[in-house]
């Protein structure tokens, strides 16, 4: 078996395993047989069936959605910007979507559907702000490197500041969004998943269709254009898809950070540099990471629950440091390409 086949077997194996673990492990352990029954032969009288179908299944589905969309969004952003630190959370998309939802809720009393639209617009705006700041700072139309990441950090801090100010401004409703704002995989958000899941799914489908021209663009805009790619159209469509995918997942359960940053680095050594393989691999791996993070958040300090977003922040922070150390702080041992 080649390294690549081994990876796919491992990825799908761990997806099934983590899904099963996620559904059966919890405050009360529920055997795989009962989980199966709850899904396929649901009995409303059985408490365990109820827990599985109305609490654990929604959580697992949210973890799948968030993991897949964020990981793919990060992979595309890292490829297009050629920046190993690019991700929805580092380029202002997550912060933009978060603050847009909170502005909608606290200032305009928007319903859930309108919050989703607001998140999409906010994510896109957050990303454009990050690009604008980076262009101003770098005095270049095509800023890359740490400038882009620092601009993203700046924009995100500013936007999260606004988000926190909004939360603090309304003590009576603060609790509704206090958990959401840190990124929280929870069955409360099942309605949001039901309403917004298709946005992420469509965006990922579009990215998959664009996989080949996107891979060409990672080699260089002129090279891609010379090979027949309409670079502005493909880049624009992909960035909008990325912003919408990430923002829709923020609209569901808040800004779960760092999946988009970490997962592409995990999968590339195994599946190579072509998006046709990176995207499915990132989707599966992102889902596994989210399922496991959710499991950890629920069980590690039981009976206390951690927010999955906090677990991801801890995990992602460590990986962020590793990447910065390897790519930016150590002498370059890699040959320039």
């Amino acid at each position: 078996m080649s390294r690549r086949q081994l990876f796919w077997a491992g990825a799908f194996g761990s997806l099934l395993l983590s899904l099963l673990l996620n559904l059966s492990v919890g405050a009360g352990a529920i055997g795989p047989g009962t989980v199966f029954d709850a899904i396929f032969r649901f009995d409303p009288e059985t408490y365990e069936h109820f827990v599985v179908l109305y609490q654990r299944v929604p959580r697992a589905l949210i973890a799948l959605q968030v993991g897949a969309t964020m990981a793919c969004a990060g992979a595309v952003l890292q490829g297009l910007t050629r920046n190993p630190l690019a991700a929805p959370a580092t380029l202002g998309i997550s912060a933009g979507a978060t603050v847009a939802v909170l502005i909608g809720v606290y200032l305009f009393d928007l319903g859930m559907q309108a919050q989703g639209l607001s998140a999409l617009a906010g994510g896109l705006l957050g990303f454009l702000c990050c690009l604008a700041v980076a262009r101003l700072v770098a005095r270049s139309r095509d800023p890359r490197g740490l400038t882009l990441i620092l601009s993203g950090a700046l924009v995100s801090m500013l936007l999260f500041g606004i988000a926190n100010a909004l939360l603090l401004s309304d003590p009576s409703r603060r609790t509704d969004f206090l958990a959401w704002v840190t990124g929280n995989i929870n069955h409360f958000y099942a309605d949001r998943l039901a309403m917004f899941w298709w946005i992420g799914a469509l965006a990922l489908l579009l990215l998959l269709i664009l996989a080949r021209p996107l891979t060409l663009i990672t080699i260089g805009a002129e090279k891609a254009a010379a090979a027949g790619v309409n670079v502005p159209v493909v880049t624009g469509a992909a960035l909008i898809a990325v912003a919408f995918a990430a923002s829709s997942s923020v609209a569901i359960c808040g800004p779960v950070a760092f999946i988009g940053l970490v997962v592409p680095h995990i999968v590339r050594p195994f599946v190579g540099g072509a998006f046709g393989l990176i995207l499915p691999a990132a989707a599966v791996t992102g889902a596994v990471v989210c399922l496991l993070a959710d499991l950890f958040a629920r069980t590690a300090f039981a009976p206390y629950l951690l927010h999955t977003g906090l677990v991801m922040d801890l995990l992602g922070g460590a990986v962020f440091i590793l990447i910065v150390k390897r790519r930016y702080l150590t002498a370059r041992t890699r040959r320039p390409a």
Partner: peptide, 18 residues
């Protein structure tokens, strides 16, 4: 010319036929 890490030669050549 720039080539992203991990892109195999065969994958690169295949892109030429886009």
């Amino acid at each position: 010319s720039y080539c992203p890490d991990y892109l195999a030669l065969g994958e690169l050549i295949e892109l030429a036929g886009y």
